[in-house]
Simulated scan of single mutants.
Amino acid sequence: MSDETGRAAVVERAARAGAAVAEEHFRRDIDVETKGGKTDVVTEADRSAQRRVIETVRETYPTDAFVGEEEDELKAVPDSGPAWVIDPIDGTNNYVRNIRVFATSVAAVVDGEPVAAANVLPALGDVYTSDADGAYRDGDPVSVSDVADPERAAVAPTIWWGFDRRDEYAAAGGTLVERFGDMRRFGCAQATLSMVADGSLEGAVTNVDCNPWDTVAGVHMIRQAGGTVTDLDGDRWTHDDRGLVASNGDLHDELLAAARRIDEVRDDDR
């Protein structure tokens, strides 16, 4: 078994293990804490799920680094060596509101580049994965949408805009509605990116700084499914870029123009 194949197997096993912890506590009486703001919430389920993911990975890769949203793990992807990027419950605001759209996300990264990923949505029963050969939903190969007409496209703003940036949030809604057939917002970045990968959405966009646990796994899936992911300049997206524009490829220029329009509002406010 090659190293990439081994990491792909472990990434799915670890994500499933963490998702089982999250699902066990879902719609139960759990304590909710706030971190950086009123809507930046965390639960003990987040921490327990992350620990389970790390325990599962360490059974096979005991010395690898971890990048995780919770506790004292790294907060940036290292440029060299292997690492695992974890979001134990992406969409915690959905989770604490008893909304089923949340995911346990794990990506295996080597020298800063993802080689395998898994997003497990336990309450919805979907498992999205990607490896060196492609992207999959529930074990079946998926590919991005072939919709090339913006008026037929459904796109999503993703990665939340804070209370001090609501003009950009409003601009995101306005410019996407003006340019595309419809708009969705799911409150879970990894679920949204997974839906771009499987063709349910034509694109997703934000102009904010992106945490690696919100993005890396889904970006790998989209690329392996034939899609395009760039920064706001149209260059290949990397884990330390500001902004993210993900699409089926056919609509990328239109989505990139929308992202730049959102960012103009940011620039006007500075």
Results as ranks from 00 to 15, higher is better:
Met1Ser: 10
Glu4Ser: 12
Gly6Arg: 12
Gly6Met: 12
Ala8Cys: 10
Glu12Met: 00
Arg13Thr: 10
Ala15Val: 01
Ala20Cys: 04
Arg27Phe: 06
Asp29Gln: 08
Ile30Cys: 09
Asp31Pro: 05
Lys35Val: 12
Lys38Cys: 15
Thr43Met: 06
Ser48Gly: 02
Thr56Arg: 00
Val57Arg: 00
Glu59Cys: 08
Thr60Val: 06
Gly68Glu: 01
Glu71Pro: 05
Asp79Asn: 06
Ser80Met: 09
Ala83Ile: 03
Trp84Asn: 01
Asp87Asn: 05
Asp87Pro: 02
Asp87Ala: 02
Asn93Phe: 04
Asn93Leu: 07
Arg100Ile: 04
Arg100Phe: 09
Thr104Glu: 00
Val110Arg: 01
Asp111Trp: 05
Val115His: 01
Ala123Lys: 08
Tyr128Trp: 09
Gly134Gln: 03
Ala135Thr: 03
Tyr136Asn: 03
Arg137Thr: 02
Arg137Trp: 02
Pro141Phe: 12
Ser145Lys: 05
Asp146Asn: 13
Val147Gly: 09
Ile159Leu: 13
Ile159Trp: 09
Arg166Ala: 15
Arg166Gly: 14
Asp167Asn: 14
Tyr169Cys: 13
Thr175Tyr: 07
Thr175Asn: 08
Leu176Tyr: 04
Glu178Cys: 09
Met183Arg: 11
Gln190Thr: 12
Ala191Leu: 12
Met195Asp: 13
Val196Ser: 11
Trp213Met: 06
Thr215Lys: 05
Gly218Val: 01
Asp233Tyr: 14
Asp241Met: 11
Ala246Trp: 07
Glu254His: 13
Leu256Thr: 02
Ala257Gln: 07
Ala259Gln: 06
Glu264Met: 06
